[in-house]
């Protein structure tokens, strides 16, 4: 009888824990969305931010976030996929492979503020660039590369071995087999992983504080010359992203509508990340269906 009572109590506790977690999530989301969504307007998204006056928007921050994400993924995806190919197809078990694994593990567990400090040291001070988009993107590359390598390696390893054997048995070399058989089959997995990683990169702030900076110069969105200082496309300009903006506004903001800006920005940030996650799921299953479908 005693043990049955204990069993009931324990089950109750577990149910309570699960309920708490669901409630926390509901609380967080409803807080962000109910407070933030009313702040979002076309004006909010399309005007520049103001440091002292009311009514500032987040146009530049939003653009910076997507632009840094784009540059980061432009560097990380090829590097990560090729690194994944190395780990899954070429690495022979032994000391060197173990060492590379340890490196990836270490990079993955580095606090992002430490990545930011390294970026400050190398990409900001040593190069003399100052706070730049490219410096931020390179710091985020360090932050993101272990994820991309792992995702790619897993996706490549999950390609059925018979596909690889079929190609090799036809007298095709390993590299061509990788390019034409293995990578196409691993593509859905890599794509899903890359989109999920994008969400993580999009929300990251600590690694950008000391690399891409806390300010944005005046931008002219009509200026598409990437070498011009007022062009949004210039990668050698400082750029405050949305995540960094949320932090900066909350810690040092002196404009009267700090709360409204923070609310709206958080809502947009969370909705963007949510969008990345949902897209990852959708794209992953859609591409998977398309590739394996029998017409």
């Amino acid at each position: 009888m005693n043990s049955k009572v204990a069993d009931r109590i324990a089950t109750g506790v577990f149910i309570a824990i699960a309920t708490i977690i669901v409630l926390v999530l509901i609380g967080l989301f409803s807080f962000i969305l109910f407070r933030g969504v009313p702040q979002i307007s076309w004006d909010f998204i399309t005007t520049t931010s103001s440091t002292v006056r009311e009514g500032g928007g987040i146009r530049d921050q939003l653009f910076n976030s997507f632009y840094i994400l784009f540059i980061t993924m432009l560097i990380t995806v090829p590097l990560g996929v090729l690194g994944g190919v190395y780990m899954a197809e070429y690495a022979k078990p032994g000391k060197i492979t173990n060492f590379i694994r340890s490196c990836i593990e270490l990079l993955a567990s580095l606090p992002s503020i430490v990545v930011g400090m390294f970026g400050l040291l190398i990409f900001v001070n040593s190069t003399g660039w100052g706070y730049t988009i490219i410096g931020g993107a390179l710091a985020l590359t360090i932050f993101n590369i272990p994820v991309m390598v792992r995702v790619s390696e897993d996706a490549i390893r999950s390609v059925p071995n018979v596909q690889k054997e079929a190609s090799l048995a036809l007298g095709i070399n390993h590299w061509h087999t990788i390019k034409t058989v293995i990578l196409p089959s691993a593509f859905p997995g890599i794509l899903t992983g890359a989109i999920l990683a994008s969400g993580r990169v999009f929300g990251e702030a600590a690694a950008l504080l000391f690399t891409a900076g806390l300010s944005t110069p005046r931008l002219d969105y009509m200026n598409w010359n990437p070498f011009s200082t007022t062009s949004p496309l210039n990668i050698f300009r400082p750029a405050e992203t949305l995540s960094v903006h949320i932090w900066a506004v909350n810690t040092n903001g002196i404009m009267p509508d700090v709360e409204a800006i923070a609310d709206g920005s958080s809502a947009i940030l969370v909705l963007s990340v949510l969008f990345f996650n949902l897209t990852a799921r959708f794209v992953g299953s859609a591409v998977h269906r398309k590739i394996t479908a029998s017409k």
Binding site: I21, V24, L25, L28, F29, I32, G199, F202, G203, E204, A205, A206, S243, V244, I246, W247, S266, L269, V270, V273, L274, F276, N277
Partner: peptide, 9 residues
Amino acid sequence: LLVGIPSVV
């Protein structure tokens, strides 16, 4: 979803 929320949020 909880994993996805950025730390500044």
